[in-house]
Design a binder for these strands. Sequence first.
DNA 1: CTGTTAGCGCTTTCAG
DNA 2: CTGAAAGCGCTAACAG
Lengths: 346, 346
Amino acid sequence: MNNINLKRLALRLNLSVSTVSKAFHDNYDISPETKKRILKLAKQLNYQPNTFASNLRTQKSRTIAVVIPEITNNFFALAINGIESVAREKGYHVLIYLTHEDYANEVSFIQHLQSGRADGVIISLSDSARSVTHLNNLRNKDIPIVFFDRIYDGMKATKITTDDYESSYNATRYLIELGCSKIAHFYYSKDLSIVNNRMKGYLQALKDYKLTFQKRYLVGCSSNNHENYQLIKRHLTKANRPEAIFSSFENLAILCYQVCEELKLSIPGDVQIVSFSNLETAALLNPSLTTITQPAYEIGQKAALALFQALDKEGTGLSNEHIVIKSELIKRNSTTRLENPSFRKP
Amino acid sequence: MNNINLKRLALRLNLSVSTVSKAFHDNYDISPETKKRILKLAKQLNYQPNTFASNLRTQKSRTIAVVIPEITNNFFALAINGIESVAREKGYHVLIYLTHEDYANEVSFIQHLQSGRADGVIISLSDSARSVTHLNNLRNKDIPIVFFDRIYDGMKATKITTDDYESSYNATRYLIELGCSKIAHFYYSKDLSIVNNRMKGYLQALKDYKLTFQKRYLVGCSSNNHENYQLIKRHLTKANRPEAIFSSFENLAILCYQVCEELKLSIPGDVQIVSFSNLETAALLNPSLTTITQPAYEIGQKAALALFQALDKEGTGLSNEHIVIKSELIKRNSTTRLENPSFRKP
DNA sequence: CTGTTAGCGCTTTCAG
DNA sequence: CTGAAAGCGCTAACAG
């Protein structure tokens, strides 16, 4: 083991371990020359302090954990991008945990994170999450939590969401103003806070515009896309098929596209579609997709900033702030195109 | 600090620390009843062993690091998915580092990883990577490295790529067989292994089919998409504009789409486009996009498996295997559609 | 089957 | 300005 450590470094310099250690932590009294000598040899020998030893000693990991349902989804990918950008700036490391919408995974991850592996946790709840004792356990160990998008309201913690209710309301109104009266809403995971809010916005818009709500236009989907495909197909084949679709999730909208293609329904000629979606490139490729787009990168950044704030004033009582960020209704139709496409920034 | 640890657990049970410790490491001799007692109290008190203490002691972190250029890219997102799936199965944790194609970031991440924070590293090189002393430093600390997609050939390590040369050759041939003779190739980052191989496949196909290579159809792009947009526009406005485009990267293909839209060129009527792309949904939304699609999830899995193999037989000499995985040419045109869309699996 | 003990490598107080 | 020493929490060899 030619591994270099403080002790060996000290030995070669005829200094004590503590002196050498101090050289790496500026604030200590140590003569400039010795410091220079130490740093020089350290660089030369390519010395890297052992993370675990210092973590153990200081009880800090300089690491945050991000727990999300999935990553092959532009919203979460962008959010991680935002989180990583501020974490790196602060010299923190980022652990990733993917629940794949499985509550058991979520519990096991959170349970493990009590080990101190991370100083704080940013989480977007899994689809099937119910009990939250695992989250309470974590909190009892003074590990701060920040929720984003799929939040749990019952815990004192910073939460970051978008204006799901308002944007859904506006999207529905947009469809109504286009002249549609038969507007279907496709959703799943009724237990998720966001799903609920989106549905409420939809229902309220119908109400305000005096459209009678029809139960058959409220379509709860499952997590099985093949089943969903058939379900959607059935709905678009019926005599009374909807003139417009408002979808809670991008992948449901994509299924709608595929169904329309199979059924030779033109979009937006036969059916209008508006969906939550952050898949900018998809939208760019298909000019008839109107989307509600969440500023995922900013959400990620905000979440990370909130977490660091909590870490800084640790113990001073937890923030219970609920930050709501505006999402954008991006209207497109076959004749207009997006100006200044922002590509896959940043 | 109400934090529970081995010592406190032992105290409450009137046992020694070591006995308690043994209860958590099955293989030791310890009476079934004591073990049960210990585990019971541990669960009750919600005990979680301190990661850093055991890491420090065992010199193992049960953590791997993934260093990639970006994450808002379906290829890398899927790859992480694959990596995470096998890591979780093995009880490993995953650290994420995003270089944003910046070599300085790559160096600093790798430099830090010598601290032992991770047992091994999976990396796809940054765009601008040149010197590899940082990688050598890491290797000197016996931290295994696995390369994927954007590999560095000069180091003894497992490397996983797709058949870039062959798939590019086939894609080019496909365009030729459609009757195109003026085929442009758009690329960037000539230093990347994959870019080189893709270009070679393109050139060889031209040669084999006796098409004279024209320098102006070989278009090197930059990392600035706004510049690229203009560049592509210029190329598609010229009198002698290409009949087909073969693009090394998805985002360049998307720019082509946008340019075509602006110039009112129909795809595939006026211009055929084939591109490397893993953005399945985008392809689904736009039926005229023909893609070379890499099995990113499998690549991630293979990379992780290779890394764990290296970790297992640590010191027994490094593997220098180069695994090549086939990518798929998915042909689409406006009249056919994909059968059995796999959605965003898995 | 259980306990004692010696560190892993680092930080940090305290004494010189 | 430098050094000695204690200890973070855990593991594992060794003794009993």
